[in-house]
Design a protein around this nucleic acid. Structure first.
Lengths: 155, 155
DNA sequence: CTTTATTGCGTGCATATACACCTTTTAATC
DNA sequence: GATTAAAAGGTGTATATGCACGCAATAAAG
């Protein structure tokens, strides 16, 4: 019987890892929730990532790629390519700056328009979750995520 | 003054969306935490996604692609391609089943070995987070994520 | 036993993500 | 002012992600 016992012990260790891995939980949830938002946003032609980037540019005004990437905790080169997609859809554009190393990202008129149109769709997704998960639960989750990020980023 | 007032009102609306979007929070956190685990796992040659998939195959035994994808809340075709990478590294393989539609995923010997070797690296990452975030905080986050996923998945 | 539905899987396409490495431009140092 | 350091950005490569569509094998319906 011993081999079986040993095997079972090992298995419970693996199960424990599977249950407790913070990254696994995050990525699983991220995939699921992303799909929810993407589905609701579909009529706008935007995915939630694109919506978030447009919204960020709207809020942070003309901003450089590097700084936007920092705000979104995204690799700069990821940001570059995501922005290129948005430029291809005519939703953002790049302004040449005085400092010729950098360019400033700005929303186009069409970008503003699409963003405005997609906000109600975002609200539908958000409310769908609020209804299901509960307002308190959801607020706590968002807050905990934000706090976790702050702590982990601290050097 | 009115145009400015209106403009500011709109801006606070955008800010509110940016702060409260569950998907934005999740994806930001997911990017950051993924990087933490990927860094710790680097000596193993695995990324956290691959580690999780190997671990899942270890736990769920010989399992079909579709069922593994369901467990991981991952699109089946994503699962297929991720598995193809792992097969390329000789970490998993496919067994032909009686039902010739399906194949069963199994760990190779090398897959078992690499998984075993990478567990201490995963533990380093997990402990790094536990230290920073705190045990209770982290447990709550993982639990909340799991609960959220359960609720959202319910039809 | 044929027809139809379902199940499991693969591929093409597009987006998202990040690392390594490189170029260009500005800032700092001497 | 020349040299060096730092900052901003781009490209190549690789992995991760999911949708639309199609194929083959099995199960269900008639």
């Amino acid at each position: 019987m011993e081999p079986i016992t040993v095997k079972n012990q090992d298995m419970s260790r693996y199960l424990e890892i599977g249950r407790t891995c913070a990254c696994g939980s995050l990525r699983r949830a991220s995939r699921l929730i992303t799909k929810v938002y993407d589905n609701f946003l579909q009529p706008s032609g935007l995915k939630i990532t694109q919506f978030i980037m447009l919204m960020s540019v709207k809020i942070l005004g003309p901003i450089t790629i590097t700084k936007l990437a920092q705000k979104l905790l995204m690799d700069r080169t990821t940001c570059t390519r995501n922005l290129k997609n948005l430029q291809g859809k005519n939703l953002i554009n790049f302004e040449q700056s005085e400092d010729r190393r950098m360019k400033k990202i700005v929303l186009t008129d069409q970008g503003n328009e699409i963003l405005e149109q997609s906000i109600p769709l975002w609200e539908k997704a958000q409310n769908f979750l609020l209804d299901k998960v509960g307002e308190n639960q959801m607020a706590r989750l968002v807050k905990d995520l934000s706090r976790t990020v702050s702590i982990v980023r601290k050097k």
